[in-house]
Amino acid sequence: MDQIRESLLKTSVATKKERFGKTITMAALILIGLVVISIFYFVASKGLATFFTDKINFWDFMTGKTWNPSTNGSNGKPQVGALPMITGSFMITVLSAIVATPFAIGTAIFMTEISPKYGAKILQPVIELLVGIPSVVYGFIGLTVVVPFIRSIFGGSGFGVLSGTVVLFVMILPTVTSMTVDTLRSVPQYYRESALAIGATQWQAIYKVILRAATPGILTAIVFGMARAFGEALAVQMVVGNAAIMPQNLTSPASTLTSILTMGIGNTVMGSMQNDVLWTLALILLVMSLIFNIIIRLIGKKGELK
């Protein structure tokens, strides 16, 4: 009998190795999938207990302005209005993104269009380094520099939305800048050349051609920065004041979802209503990060269509 013919019909060592490799790599991937599913399951089941087990009204929770879980309000129900934290989180996120955006875009244009040499040699490494700086370091600097500075100008304690905004602005600036730089670099060179060739000034080429082409990418960078700001816990918690009240102005002590969460989770008993409401805050964070994710996807899809 033909030996080669025989061997063709057997399962070779290579096939066995292939099966092995495919199985273990797939197992690793499925493990990650399971982790994500269980994160959602656990956080959701804990967070929803507020409404299903502790019978707290959803709208009261989302719109109530008093956060004092251990005492009951005039209606006999615990005072768990999360609006102060939700407001705080959104204010800080939006404000820091508004401040960071012009700086990030300006710096990115400078690095890619005006002075690519200087940008690549000096700014790029510094920005990459700053992207990696731990958030507690930002928080610490906020605490020792920003808070006293704001106190000396506006009076009060210095803790509050403004301090949080400044800290997060500096913190997301490197991230948004480096993502914008990547986007601008991905705009094909001939866009620039053809704009300049028809007599446009450099600024016209940048403003009318390059920025237009890069808009989806820049938006993604900004939303990404906002997602990071919204989910940041410690840096904000260190400077915001952690007073669960509606922010009166930018310099009065306020709070965010993350700050109340970090402060509270260790001081409450697992399974109690006081603990459940904190998990609901975590659930809001989770849902918000999903929403940011969807926005980024939508921007990506629109960008493709162009």
């Binding site: 999938g33 994500v36 993350t258 999903l290």
Partner: peptide
């Protein structure tokens, strides 16, 4: 597609949420 989406979501989760999940599942 599903797994890729899951990985993207995991990367965008606030680290405090990941920490709390770890606390709930592993610590407790």
């Amino acid at each position: 597609t599903m797994i890729r989406t899951a990985i993207e979501i995991l990367s965008s989760l606030p680290s405090v949420v990941v920490g709390l999940f770890g606390f709930l599942l592993i610590v407790v």
